[in-house]
Amino acid sequence: MSSESEIFFNQLKESGYEILVDKFSQEITSAKQTAESLTKTMPDSHHMYDEPSNVFTPNKINIDNNE
């Protein structure tokens, strides 16, 4: 096991996922890669106040139609 893997497995254990780490460590490694590739496929977003920075909430989607 690489030291990087050891670190994140330990972090997961400290967060309460001991059983998961003990029984399914291979699945965890693969899931970490999936998460990393997912975030890489998101479009670049630069952070400006003149852009929609609000977090999506259900009520906001209806503004154009119902108000």
Binding site: L12, K32, A35, L38, T39, M42, E51, V55, F56
Partner: peptide, 15 residues
């Protein structure tokens, strides 16, 4: 994969 998605990634996804 939810274990490895960071807070900033979630916020950026919502933006």
């Amino acid at each position: 994969p939810g274990l490895f998605i960071k807070g900033e990634d979630y916020v950026n996804a919502q933006r």
